[in-house]
Design a protein around this nucleic acid. Structure first.
Lengths: 238, 238
DNA sequence: ATTGATGTCACAAAACCTTCATAAAACGGC
DNA sequence: GCCGTTTTATGAAGGTTTTGTGACATCAAT
């Protein structure tokens, strides 16, 4: 089974729309799709809500009372906390120009009314996927182990190391909290997920495979076993 | 294995370093990675060599005889032909301040001794990618694959290969982000578009067609499968 | 009508997980 | 140290998931 969001359960979407019927329709559909929905009826309210708590994505109507969608978008791009916030512009005009201008003001995507709810969902998912990916992507290191998230590669002391998906996630997690000890249960929650059922001892097996993969003859064992407590990434075994 | 210079096959790197052992070690590793290596033992020699022939990237030690690394960097930034030349500063001091000062003098990145060779390589690649991206247009390359956007043609190792429209766009996208792993969903978003509905497994089929087209007997497979993650353009499959 | 391209499916082939049984190691009390 | 107990390491087996592949129906352009 593929997993979706390693971060939070429900993505939060802010709908900025002054036409109540449309807004209601959207809320209904988005909630059915597992979004947590918030609403704002004009530009000012939108910025207020965003500053209170940054949502995962914003649906922004083009024409708004008080502050136009374009202006709201500009403001969003200005703030450092909201610079990468995905914004989808919703516009009634079909003119290409408008759409382009929307993009130039910083919207990540746009859609014209009337729109297909499926199309909207597809774009939202795409943006969320992109944003989520780029945020956590980078590189992790510990001692002489390097993990490159973007290329999905792991190196020990320069030499490339092959890991299975689970070992990869396991190491990924451990690399995020070096030296800290985690119980088998904690590891299961973090690496496998909370709602699956797997024997705690299964962790042992994956730890072993991880060890086998990253430790070569002459190298120190980077995985520390802490009896009656769990495992940790560490340079000193005992 | 890795390389990416859009200009020539082998990117040329100039190592400016007065400690011979380090310099030798770097030469060995970088040549193994497909770089053409040149060396300079002090700041003056560095500038001389750069003026002779501008390399693709410079590894610049902080502490140097004759002319400090900072000064060399300043000079590099001064010249019109070398203004955009990527420079990585190598320093023994860990102080953040030094690093920052290094960046202020115009270095594009820095790394502190002792450093992991993989980390260095990653940064070099990133810089080369950035530099290359802005300069070249209309043509993409990776390993021995060349794509000419203008003529819509693709070559592997000189020989022309035929791709269907979808395979072409797929390869085009992958070429824009070499080595990076993309999930089936991401590929669908980027290559097919967000609105359409296509089974994720369809990506497999097109990956296969792409493989069949660009890989000939005796040639390495340039498409890497990353189980449970997706696909990437890479020179090492495993 | 013929060709070429595309999206799906079903089945084969790998790669991978989980579990279990057994060996090995660590610990506690004496 | 010695012994019994608890905890971890390890190897193998069997089942599951993921990917590779060939075939096919559809559709558009020629």
């Amino acid at each position: 089974m593929p997993e979706l969001s390693p971060r939070s359960a429900k993505p939060r979407v802010l709908i900025v729309e002054d036409e109540a019927p449309l807004s209601t329709m959207l809320r209904y559909n988005l909630e059915k799709q597992g979004f947590r929905v918030e609403e704002a009826a004009d530009g000012q309210e939108a910025l207020l809500r965003i500053n209170e708590a940054v949502p995962d994505i914003v649906l922004l109507d083009w024409m708004l009372p008080n502050l136009s969608g374009i202006e709201v978008c500009r403001q969003i791009r200005r703030g450092s906390a909201t610079r990468d916030l995905p914004v989808i512009m919703v516009t009634a005009r079909t003119d290409e120009q408008d759409a382009v201008r929307g993009l130039n003001t910083g919207a990540d995507d746009y859609i014209t009314k009337p729109f297909n709810i499926e199309a909207l969902l597809a774009r939202m998912r795409a943006l969320l996927r992109r944003a989520g990916g780029s945020a956590s992507k980078g590189r992790r290191e510990f001692h002489d182990v390097v993990m490159d998230l973007a290329t999905h590669r792991v190196y020990r002391n320069g030499r490339g190391v092959h890991l299975g998906p689970t070992e990869f996630r396991l190491l990924d997690f451990l690399l995020q909290h070096p030296r800290r000890v985690f119980s088998r249960e904690e590891l299961l929650d973090a690496v496998w997920g909370t709602d699956i059922h797997v024997e705690p001892r299964t962790v042992d097996v994956h730890i072993r495979r991880l060890r086998k993969a990253i430790n070569e003859a002459g190298e120190i064992d980077l995985v520390r076993t802490v009896r009656a407590a769990g495992y940790a990434l560490d340079t000193e075994s005992h």
